[in-house]
Design a protein around this nucleic acid. Structure first.
Length: 434
RNA sequence: GCAGGGGUUCCCGAGUGGCCAAAGGGAUCAGACUGUAAAUCUGACGCGAAAGCUUCGGUGGUUCGAAUCCACCCCCCUGCACCA
């Protein structure tokens, strides 16, 4: 029997990971007594989760480490409906085939964060389609629907803007999402004696719905706990960069790009993120913060954060790859790289492109845009005009635009065929001549 | 179905016949400063290296000229839909 660490909630509290919870002291007692079963849902809204899901995933892991049994629920059913919570607009429905494909991928992703082989409190993954697919409408309306008062539903903060805002509305389908998710909690309570649901702060309404339904249907006492929404000090959305969403899937966001994302965390956010996204103790993090404050210049926190999170998500190999590239590009000096180093960078996920045969006939701007280095030619033009395009360390001016061959010269090539092109301060791409 | 309101460039949001590729803000990109920060300043920001080209839900029309006017259509929202 796994021993229960009664200080779990204190730790979560001090990390700022508790937004709201039901029951307060009752929940504290509930979790201290023995190992409990808890769950968190992940809807398949894309073919991969992104870093927004990392907080709940890691929290499941924290609960497991403290002796509780986590269930990761993949929303094969709820993903077909669409959660309206705090969404400004009705969402486009995805086809069942598409959603079920995503379910498989997300099931695998979720699985890497929790332990399935630790005996007593081994994790499990479930799909809510299993208990909803066969349900008929009348049962749903009589057994589930009857427990919900529309009066309460329309007062939920999560759907308020959809109800109040001029120009928007909500379909019955999405309005029903609350019942679907509530049903999940009641079901897991019945079959696995699950007594706690965790989720993002936007899930509060859905979670309390489940708490009530479980009480009404099974007279069960269950709890809910929400995690904070991850915000940035500058007010911009967390988890996005110029290149788009940061995904957990290494095929969509390379470990290198992932590592760079965390490395670029603002000072104002980094200690908070360390508490959210790593397993370093709060004392360690505070110690680090103190050290950083005392020394001049660049803090070490970002590096610690990047290493810890990259290792959690992409493992030691992914981290090593990310560090190799970073080291080579930002501090090593590319001319010192060996040929095998360059090949390794390519394998490690540094964006790379084969230089087209006829590149000499195109404009340099075209070559770079086609390679995906910039969204439009204007950006490259701007960069060229400011000496912000470097090929193997040499600045390339605007006059090379009409004559790309003058940028990719044989003398400039590393080992006769490699060109590391830098656009701006942080964007690197490897071009390889054929 | 009826009655109202609405659909503008990534987002918000101005613009109601020429001065509009379309104000302003946000986001984003680049430069300076730096720590691959922040703040600040500068430039870019439909596409195109440029000449130029294509836009304001769609299609047609009026006009020398339309995001702006007209017609029809599509989509979204709100209200009504027993008595009427």
């Amino acid at each position: 029997m796994a021993t229960v660490d009664a200080t779990l909630l204190q730790d979560l509290q001090s990390r700022g990971l508790i937004n709201q919870m039901t029951g307060d002291d009752e929940l504290v007692a509930h979790l201290s007594e023995e190992g409990r079963t808890l769950y968190c849902g992940f809807d398949p809204t894309a073919d991969s989760l992104h870093i927004g899901s990392l907080v709940p995933l890691l929290t499941l892991k924290r609960f497991q480490a403290a002796g509780h049994k986590p269930i990761a629920l993949v929303g094969g059913a709820t993903g077909l409906i669409g959660d309206p919570s705090f969404k400004a607009q009705e969402r486009q429905l995805n086809t069942p085939e598409v959603v079920s494909g995503w379910v498989d991928k997300i099931r695998r992703q979720v699985s890497q964060f929790i332990d399935f082989e630790c005996g007593e409190n081994a994790a499990s993954v479930v799909n809510n389609l299993d208990w909803t697919a066969e349900m008929n409408v009348l049962d749903f309306l009589r057994d589930i629907g009857k427990h919900f008062a529309v009066n309460n539903m329309i007062h939920k903060e999560s759907v308020k803007q959809r109800l109040d805002r001029e120009g928007e509305g909500i379909s019955f389908t999405e309005f029903t999402y609350l019942l679907m998710q509530s049903m999940d909690f009641a079901e897991l309570h019945k079959r696995d004696n699950c007594t706690l649901q965790i989720g993002g702060s936007d899930q509060w309404g859905n979670i309390t719905g489940g708490v009530e339904l479980t009480r009404r249907q099974h007279r069960g006492k269950v709890f809910g706990l929400t995690l904070p929404l991850v915000t940035k000090a500058d007010g911009t959305k967390f988890g996005k960069t110029e290149a788009g969403t940061i995904w957990l899937d290494p095929a969509k966001t390379s470990p290198y790009a992932f590592y760079q994302f965390w490395l670029n965390t603002a000072d104002a956010d980094v200690y908070k993120f360390l508490k959210y996204f790593t397993f370093l103790s709060v004392e360690q993090i505070e110690g680090l913060e103190k050290e950083d404050a005392e020394r001049q210049g660049r803090p070490q926190a970002q590096g610690v954060l990047a290493r810890e999170v990259t290792r959690l998500v992409h493992g030691d190999e992914g981290l090593a790859a990310a560090e190799r590239i970073t080291e080579a590009l930002f501090s090593g000096g590319i001319e010192q790289l060996s040929e095998s180093d360059l090949e390794q960078l390519r394998l490690d996920g540094l964006p790379s492109t084969d230089l087209p045969e006829n590149f000499g006939e195109q404009s340099l701007i075209n070559v770079l845009v086609d390679a995906g280095m910039a969204a439009s030619g204007k950006q490259v033009k701007d960069a060229l005009g400011r000496n912000a395009v470097l090929v193997n360390g040499d600045a390339i001016g605007m006059d090379a635009n009409a004559d790309p061959a003058s940028a990719f010269t044989a003398e400039r090539a590393l080992f006769g065929r490699y060109f590391v092109v830098r656009l701006g301060k942080k964007k690197y791409q490897l071009f390889v001549a054929g």
